[in-house]
Every structure is written in structure tokens, then in C-alpha cells.
């Protein structure tokens, strides 16, 4: 009973709590980083240096009036934010934060479950989140959201292909679809896959930016053109769900990237003897640290680059990234057979 129900439920609660608070502080971090890059201070009012800002934001969003446009499709307008958030959260079911730890005399693995098709699970669940964007834009019954939800769907579908392709080349290298096995394979190889598959990593990062609608690919919500994008008509908690999903997705892709390319929970420099003490730090700390670094890259890019145009983004996806990912896959497969 304890093994079957209590521990998994407890793990889910921990993961969801951790992810949600990470999202809240991710927003603050983003605003702070943006501000520092842009010679501003960022939020300063709520708490010292604005550290309580996320709490204030959440309170505000929860207590806000929930406005639904009169001409909106009532059912889908409510469904859309839910459809965006749920897939983003349940992806964490297979993300390994570490190997295992001992608590109250029990061996507890630091992941909710280890599916032998973990990677496919992530890809397929993530693809469901797309419906939220499309339906949200359509249900608002307004032109700007519709345009941007079209952009969103086309963009995500395109970049999904490239990203999945890079993941496939990693599967070829690692010989498994399970995220835990992939990290263990990296441990066995003694090298993180980012060094074996640098091209795949670059494609993955670009594709991840595009899939999460982050700058410079944040077309679906291009403030300057579409005034907010698919969630223009949303307010209050429904809007908060879209927001939550966006940042959760960022954490998801970073976590997947860390697992696939940066050795997951493994400590760096494991082969350097005088740095062996790094291995004493718990794995989940390394995992969080690496995820944080990847997320910071997202923020840095957002503060630096202008935005792509829709057709250019499509060209980049279909004519550059996908062929490159295909070639990379073919090369990895051939090398795998030869070596």
C-alpha cells in the first residue's frame, strides 16, 4: 500500500509544488535578469528586492475578476487553459531528478516513474498542450488571438519535428527510450552527450526556444504586433494558467535537455580526480543547477535578440533545422553501427 500509493502520491505532490514555486520564482528571475541587462532594477517593492513579488502576483491573479468575452465559445474558452497546463505538468512524471535516496529506512527513487518509453511519453504529452493554444485563440472569437493561435500551431508542429529528430539521434546513441537509462548510459560512457552530439544539442536548444514560444521565436505572443497573442482576451486565473504553462514548459524542455545532453543528475568532471568531491553533492542539486543554467540561457537570449518573422521562422525550421537534424540522425545511426 505504502509503495503503491502513498509514496507516488507524495512524490507527485512534491514535484508539483516544486515546479509551481519554481515557475513563480522563474517569473521573478526573468524580470530581474531582464532588468539587469536593461540597466533597470526590476521589481523592488514587494519584500526586499522584490522577492515576494511572485506571491503578490499570484494573489492578484487569483482575486481578479474573470472576464469572458460575450461572443466567446463558453466551453472551449474554459477548456483551453486547462488543456495547456495539464500536459505541461504531467510531463514531470518521467523526469528523473536523481537516482534514489533513503528516507525513513526506505529506498526511494527520485523520479515518479521510469517508463521504458519515457521520451516518447514526453513528446506525445507535450503535443497535446498545443490544443490549448489553438482553442484558446479560436474560442476568444477575436481576430488577433486567432491569427496568433494559427502561428502557434504551425510553429510548434514544425519545430516539434526537428526537436524530436534530435532526441531520436540521442536514443540511437544511448540505446534506450527511458530517461533514467539515458542518464545511466552517459555515466557508463563517461561523457555527457552534449559532447558526443553537439549538433543535436544546438538544434535542440533552438527548437526548444521555438517550441516554448520564447524569444526570438515568441511570435504567437508578439506584443508589438498582435497585442498579446492567443491569450489577449484572457484575464485573471485563466490567463495565469497560460502563463503558468509557458514557464512550466520552459522548465520541462530545460529538464529534458539536461537529462538528454547534460548528464542529468551526474556530477561534472567525474574523471578528474581532484574534483571527485563534486560527486558528494546530491544528484538532484546538480540536476537543478543545470536546469537553472539552461533556463538562464533562455532569459539571456530573450534580453538580447530581436524577434524572427513568421515566414523566416518557418524557413529556419523546415529548411535548416529539420534537414540538419535528419543528417545528424543518419550520421549517428551509421556511426553507431560502425563503432
Amino acid at each position: 500500500m505504502i509503495d503503491m500509493v502513498v509514496i507516488p502520491v507524495f512524490k507527485m505532490l512534491v514535484v508539483i509544488t516544486a515546479v509551481l514555486s519554481a515557475v513563480a520564482y522563474m517569473v521573478l528571475l526573468e524580470r530581474k535578469v531582464q532588468a539587469w541587462v536593461q540597466v533597470r532594477l526590476g521589481p523592488m517593492r514587494v519584500g526586499p528586492h522584490g522577492v515576494l513579488q511572485p506571491i503578490a502576483d499570484v494573489l492578484k491573479l487569483i482575486t481578479k475578476e474573470d472576464v469572458r468575452p460575450a461572443s466567446a465559445d463558453r466551453f472551449l474558452f474554459t477548456l483551453a487553459p486547462i488543456l495547456v497546463v495539464v500536459p505541461a505538468l504531467i510531463v514531470f512524471a518521467v523526469v528523473p531528478f536523481g537516482t534514489s535516496t533513503t528516507m525513513f529506512g526506505k529506498e526511494i527513487s527520485l523520479y515518479i516513474t521510469d517508463l521504458d518509453i519515457g521520451l516518447l511519453y514526453i513528446v506525445s504529452v507535450a503535443s497535446i498542450g498545443l490544443y490549448g493554444l489553438i482553442l484558446g485563440g479560436w474560442a476568444s472569437n477575436s481576430k488577433y488571438p486567432l491569427l496568433s493561435s494559427l502561428r502557434a500551431s504551425a510553429q510548434i508542429v514544425s519545430y516539434e519535428v526537428a526537436v524530436t529528430m534530435t532526441l531520436v539521434s540521442l536514443i540511437v546513441t544511448a540505446g534506450s527510450l527511458s530517461l533514467v537509462e539515458i542518464v545511466k548510459a552517459q555515466e557508463a560512457h563517461g561523457v555527457w552527450y552534449v559532447f558526443i552530439q553537439p549538433v543535436a544539442f544546438v538544434i535542440f536548444v533552438i527548437g526548444a526556444l521555438a517550441e516554448t514560444n520564447r524569444a526570438p521565436f515568441d511570435l504567437p505572443e508578439a506584443e508589438q504586433e498582435l497585442v498579446g497573442g492567443f491569450h489577449t482576451e484572457y484575464s485573471g486565473m485563466r490567463f495565469a494558467l497560460f502563463f503558468l504553462a509557458e514557464y512550466t514548459n520552459m522548465i520541462v524542455v530545460s529538464a529534458v535537455g539536461v537529462t538528454m545532453f547534460l548528464g542529468g543528475w551526474l556530477a561534472p568532471f567525474s574523471s578528474v580526480s581532484w574534483l571527485a568531491w563534486l560527486g558528494l553533492v546530491p544528484g538532484w542539486v546538480w540536476f537543478s543547477l543545470k536546469t537553472f543554467l539552461l533556463l538562464s540561457l533562455f532569459l539571456w537570449i530573450r534580453a538580447t535578440l530581436p524577434r524572427y518573422r513568421y515566414d523566416q521562422l518557418m524557413r529556419l525550421g523546415w529548411k535548416v533545422l529539420i534537414p540538419l537534424a535528419l543528417v545528424n540522425l543518419a550520421v549517428s545511426a551509421v556511426l553507431k553501427v560502425l563503432l
Binding site: V125, S127, V157
Partner: peptide, 13 residues
């Protein structure tokens, strides 16, 4: 998983 990925995530979109 393939059912979700191909049908729900691809074709029906």
C-alpha cells in the same frame, strides 16, 4: 503513446 503522438498531436491538429 504513438496513438497520442500521431493522431492527437499530429493529424487532428
Amino acid at each position: 503513446v504513438i496513438q497520442v503522438l500521431v493522431y492527437a498531436g499530429g493529424i487532428v491538429v
